[in-house]
Design a protein around this nucleic acid. Structure first.
Lengths: 203, 203
DNA sequence: TTGAGGTAACTTACCCTAGGGTCATTTACC
DNA sequence: GGTAAATGACCCTAGGGTAAGTTACCTCAA
């Protein structure tokens, strides 16, 4: 009779446990932000206690960084790939990027939230890394916005900047909505966005 | 020789002080969210110490509520008025609402952020009030989105819902950008948005 | 006009808890 | 018996919250 024991190994290898923790952490951080999230709560979700998190990740910052890197790398890679595929008119780019994001994060919808967490302290390593990822994402958005505007003979620097920022906000909103709609899979989201853009803007 | 003394009254009447505190609080809460903001820091910005905040507002929650109510009331009133003015085609509504928001919050740009603070605890009075304001704002957005879609013969419930959510996200992004552009006044922002919508969507 | 007392504005110095972080120890498996 | 997985019980600090006292101003009687 193997009781669930309170102390001692549960036979889960480190790598697997780390993955579980990062996933739970991503959701918790995504939901409540860095400042609002609690290590005990993350541990509880995994079915483990706090010291294990510290043994594996060193600190709250360490865990946050692990989550942030996983989310940031996957995201920037996915977007970079999509935007590298040339040939389409710039109105098509937004949908392509959205589709890539939906596909990548279908099972990890809170990941995107880490990239826009306003509650990370403004100094320290986390701040640096977060700024870096945001900088890269904003870069993609700027390129896309500039292409779109130029294709219409426009090039007001600040208009482009504003559009880029609105774009990342749109992605954010769509993901927030998606989080509340667990039954919608990536394909359904892409299709919905496609339909809406066609109907509202003729894109 | 009247030295700045460390203790004792500074002759600032309560009402005026309260206004200062609410303004500073709004900025601090807007910047860092409820969870990330610190009472000592808010006091420091006003040039006063923490106990005064507690004497005037009772608690962190009390101060947050004061800020939230001021922001929420002004916002919902402004938007309600704008949307009550009928007659325009639904494509015009977004710009009208934006203009109203810019005019109302030109000197208080962080106020909007309180309405979308993800770090407020999920239970308690604040949660209730915040949900209430958000509910009202989302209501306006839903009405606007529905009008827009219906004017094109469409009525998919969830498309409308998604559009409404994206819309509030767009407002949020524009305000974030605006916060970083102190030289842009309300009129300039309205004009910029007008130009962009015309150029990108033909609205 | 002066000064005594009452009140409003404000601070110093403290308490208390939530939550980040650590240590020593226990269990399971090879 | 050595090592990896895991915990109970603890420490420490940041920050929310409070008690008690200090200063400035206003008022009104003498």
């Amino acid at each position: 009779m193997t009781e669930a024991r309170a102390v001692g190994t549960k036979g889960v290898p480190r790598e697997e446990r780390e993955t579980q923790i990062v996933r739970a952490g991503t959701e918790e951080f995504g939901r409540n932000g860095y400042a609002g999230a609690s290590m005990v709560e993350i541990a509880r979700r995994v079915g483990v206690t706090k010291p294990l998190l510290y043994q594996y990740f060193g600190s709250k910052d360490g865990l946050y960084l692990a989550c942030l890197h996983r989310a940031g790398d996957r995201l920037t890679e996915g977007v970079a790939e999509t935007m590298a595929e040339e040939g389409e008119p710039p109105e098509r780019m937004p949908l392509a990027v959205l589709s890539a994001i939906f596909e990548t994060f279908d099972n990890d919808r809170y990941a995107w939230k880490l990239l826009r967490d306003p509650t990370v302290p403004s100094t320290g390593e986390i701040a640096g890394v977060a700024v870096d990822y945001r900088y890269r994402l904003d870069g993609f958005a700027l390129v896309g916005a500039a292409q779109l505007m130029r294709s219409r003979g426009l090039d007001d620097e600040r208009d482009i900047e504003a559009i880029a920022q609105v774009w990342t906000g749109v992605v954010d909103s769509l993901i927030s909505w998606w989080i509340d709609q667990p039954d919608q899979d990536a394909a359904a989201m892409t299709e919905r966005c496609s339909r809406i853009m066609r109907n509202l803007f003729g894109w």
